[in-house]
Design a protein around this nucleic acid. Sequence first.
DNA 1: CGGTAACTTGAGAGTGGTCAAGTAGAGTGG
DNA 2: CCACTCTACTTGACCACTCTCAAGTTACCG
Lengths: 239, 239
Amino acid sequence: MTQPADRLGGSGSGDGPVADELRLLPGSRSTDRKVEAGQELFGVGAPFDAVYNLIDGWVALYTLLEDGRRQIVQFVLPGGVFGMCGGSSGRTTYGAQALTEALVSVVSLAVLTARLRDSPDVTARLVRSLSRDRALAFDHLTSVGRRNARERVACLILELFVRCRTQWPGNRIEEMYLPLTQEHIGDATGLTFVHVNRVLRALRKEGVVEFHHRRLRILDPDRLVGVAGVDHNAAMAWL
Amino acid sequence: MTQPADRLGGSGSGDGPVADELRLLPGSRSTDRKVEAGQELFGVGAPFDAVYNLIDGWVALYTLLEDGRRQIVQFVLPGGVFGMCGGSSGRTTYGAQALTEALVSVVSLAVLTARLRDSPDVTARLVRSLSRDRALAFDHLTSVGRRNARERVACLILELFVRCRTQWPGNRIEEMYLPLTQEHIGDATGLTFVHVNRVLRALRKEGVVEFHHRRLRILDPDRLVGVAGVDHNAAMAWL
DNA sequence: CGGTAACTTGAGAGTGGTCAAGTAGAGTGG
DNA sequence: CCACTCTACTTGACCACTCTCAAGTTACCG
């Protein structure tokens, strides 16, 4: 474990009682694969014949432009499913990188289609997951397309905060582990890390949020929601 | 019909032999609903208990910010499925507006879940559709987050061109009907319509594309791909 | 022929990018 | 224990891409 022991964001390094409700296919943990922080699960354009189901840890999905510009299109939390791609090319259009030590269940497409056939429950899980992803992607698109830098950063922080809360309903509401660099935030919001830094400093000086050493502290939740420019109810809808 | 008769982009106004492969639920056309161009299918935050399956025409999915800023998150073409939302709120987070006269099949959630249960084929269609949507959303996100105005506009045009081609493999490759205003393009690319106009003028002057009166003419496909900054293969992957 | 929606163009301003330099912190090896 | 290194963070100066505001023009439709 490279993370501090008291972090939120994982159920620990053991193979303990990992909740089955995080699994697309409950039960089978024979296909589990563990990767270290920073490792790539698969790269952009990799052939795909399997679906990944994150059980523990954080994963970032990203795309690349020819000249190296990068866009993080999604942060995956436990329970998330990725690796399925639209298009007929049989290759992924995005890559997946573990942000922390992570545990994924690898499900081959053959197994998945078989299970979809006989298990309405698996189908429902997958459809729900894909729908959620699409809704999240739409939100990000709106943020990046129509919000300014302050709003984007605040929005992202708020989103991750809310998603973490629901994943790990811990008690330390004011502080949480966020395994990101400012460059990650920039790549997710469509900004440069230099500008992310400026925004973060401003928010810090104003006493809204504090983000140092992968620890996020929400100093003033209400102000944060205000800066993000989201409806109070909308923020709750992420739950 | 408000569109010229020779447009690409629809199978006509009749109730003729609409291909069943566009339908999530083949056969049942009792639930079809026809809407005029410009009409809203549902607004942002509408309660949803049904899934929409576009059979004919163009639809735009959009989100709104409190102050009126709008982001188009997806252009739906025949065969597309929308109206399913992630989140548990039971309300849509985006609205849907018909860009042309459109024909949609409305499937109640109850019916859908029943069909998912007993028809692997329906399940496969839905999963494929949702996966494709997610991939498209990721592409848009990359565009809006990491490309400049020229690239974004070129990308969008290219994407719509390719998608149209595959929908309606007509013969007039050089010209097609695109039921958008420059403001639509702006709302989809995260730009203002003023700036979209400038970009479009420049591309026109350079002899790359021409877009007037809802007619798009690709003057120089290779240059367009170059301006868009996409890999030649990647462009084909949309097919 | 008037009204309206879409498109066009210009001038000025501002948000956010680029480039460059420097600081802080964690890990490593002498 | 102290350089040394590497990554992440910080800050400043400058600039440009894109927005805003404001006037027009054009095309379509009643």
